[in-house]
Amino acid sequence: MINKKMKKYQGLFHLKNLPDLVIVVDPSINYAAIKEAKKMQIPVLAFIDIETPRIEEVDYWIPISNRSTQSIYQFFKIFVNLNK
């Protein structure tokens, strides 16, 4: 069990600084990540679908279908290109 968790989160162990922003694709599934980010005072950006309940801990909402991989891909493609 511990090895499974270590493998799942191994990329986080090498962080030297906290991230500037946490992006959550499905806030209802990733609520624990949202709570942890807020505890560490990291802003949270989340995709909101018509069926997604509003979560108060989310700082920025993007109205987009979080069930469509095409929509999510397009968002991240634009987001990455803006930060180059």
Rank of each mutant, 00 (worst) to 15 (best):
R67D: 11
K39E: 08
G11N: 15
A33M: 12
N30Q: 13
K16D: 14
G11S: 14
S65H: 00
I23S: 06
N30C: 11
K8H: 09
K5V: 06
I62A: 02
S65L: 06
N17K: 10
M40D: 08
A37T: 01
L12Y: 15
D26S: 12
K35N: 10
E56W: 04
F75W: 09
Q74H: 11
M1N: 06
K7V: 14
F47T: 02
N81G: 02
L12R: 11
Q41N: 15
E56T: 14
F47R: 02
M1F: 05
I48F: 15
I2P: 04
L82M: 11
R54F: 15
L21Y: 03
K38W: 04
T52Y: 10
T52I: 06
T52V: 01
Y31C: 09
N30P: 05
I64E: 06
Y9R: 05
L21Q: 07
P43V: 08
I62M: 11
K35L: 13
S71K: 13
A37I: 02
L45F: 04
K38P: 02
P53R: 14
I55K: 06
V24Y: 00
F47W: 02
I72A: 06
F79V: 01
N81C: 07
P43L: 11
V22L: 15
V24G: 01
N3R: 08
N17W: 08
K16R: 11
S28K: 14
Y73C: 07
I78T: 12
V80T: 10
Q74T: 09
P27Q: 03
P53E: 09
K84F: 09
E56Q: 09
L45G: 01
V80R: 13
L82T: 11
L82P: 00
Y9M: 12
D49I: 00
M1A: 13
S71N: 13
I48H: 10
S28R: 08
K77M: 04
P19S: 08
Q41T: 01
E56Y: 10
I64S: 05
F13P: 02
V58N: 00
D59A: 08
D49P: 07
K4S: 11
M40I: 04
F76P: 05
K7C: 08
Y60L: 09
V25P: 02
T69W: 04
P19L: 14
E57R: 01
F13V: 09
I62L: 15
K35M: 09
A46M: 03
S28V: 15
N3I: 00
K39Y: 08
N30A: 15
I78S: 12
I34A: 03
L18G: 05
K7P: 00
D49W: 04
T69K: 11
E51Y: 12
V22E: 05
F47G: 02
I42N: 03
T52H: 03
N17D: 12
I64A: 07
I34S: 02
N17R: 13
Y73P: 05
K84M: 11
R54P: 00
I34Q: 00
E56G: 03
K35Y: 00
N66Q: 08
E57I: 02
N3H: 13
I42E: 01
Q10I: 14
S65P: 03
F79H: 04
T52E: 09
I62D: 04
Q41F: 10
N83G: 01
Y60S: 01
D20I: 05
L82G: 05
F13I: 14
I42V: 07
N66Y: 04
P27R: 03
P43W: 03
L21T: 04
S28I: 14
M40Q: 13
E36W: 06
I64N: 04
S28Q: 14
Y31N: 14
